[in-house]
Design a protein around this nucleic acid. Structure first.
Lengths: 117, 117
DNA sequence: GCGACATATCATTCATCGCTGATACGAGAA
DNA sequence: TTCTCGTATCAGCGATGAATGATATGTCGC
């Protein structure tokens, strides 16, 4: 239906951001910004467990954020769209301006940042 | 410590994206792209409950994504940084390319999209 | 001061997501 | 074929976050 398009778009947008809202996935995507890597290389680059990486890659792949390319018994992954990289970069830029605020926000995961008070 | 900067950045980045990874907050931010609004207006624009909006605005404000400006007994909110709007727009652009994939991804919240299989 | 309105806070409930460990699958080498 | 390596899948646990409803704070008009 047309009148619901707005809400649907918001949901899709939220889903997209949720795909990026995890340090593990960000580490994977960031690693892939340097070029295609096979799973083992991603595991090495991110220090994550193999099944963890595989799980995330599956999701990212289904969402189109990365593309899989089987080659022999390896599977190479690359970013699925250049704008994924842009999005990551823009987020980094934004962090330069509001990083202090983000760090201070105690509402969401603060594994690496101290909760305020 | 310097050697941990990378992981910390990833965490902050994740936190930033997590701030955007919710349809309610996206609705609020999208509404604010049109200019400053007071809480009641945001409630009207988003169809969310007042306490829900207030909670989200608090978080967004602490994170620097929006700015609060008390005026009389109203409180007007605006986007805290132009790049927030850019980020939203870039996400929308990206959705144009991979929306089908995002919709198909059954791993994350699918309130408005059907799970695949 | 008193009542009405705008906003903020709090505790609870409910759902969701990420990680782990074990295991299954599949392709290549010997 | 058989063994080994790379990758994928699955179930379960632990933790986090979003929405609600009631309530508190604070500001304006009368």
């Amino acid at each position: 239906m047309l009148i619901d398009t707005k809400a649907q778009t918001l949901d899709l947008q939220a889903k997209l951001f949720r795909g990026l809202a995890d340090p593990s996935r960000l580490a994977i995507l960031t690693a892939l910004r340097g070029g295609p890597l096979h799973v083992g290389a991603v595991v090495g680059a991110t220090q994550l467990s193999q099944s963890n990486v595989s799980n995330h890659l599956r999701c990212l792949s289904e969402c189109g954020l990365v593309q899989a390319e089987p080659r022999g018994r390896f599977v190479y992954y690359r970013l699925g769209d250049a704008r994924v990289g842009e999005l990551l970069q823009l987020a980094l830029d934004l962090l330069g301006g509001v990083a202090n605020g983000i760090a201070a926000c105690d509402r969401y995961g603060d594994e690496a940042t101290k909760p305020c008070t």
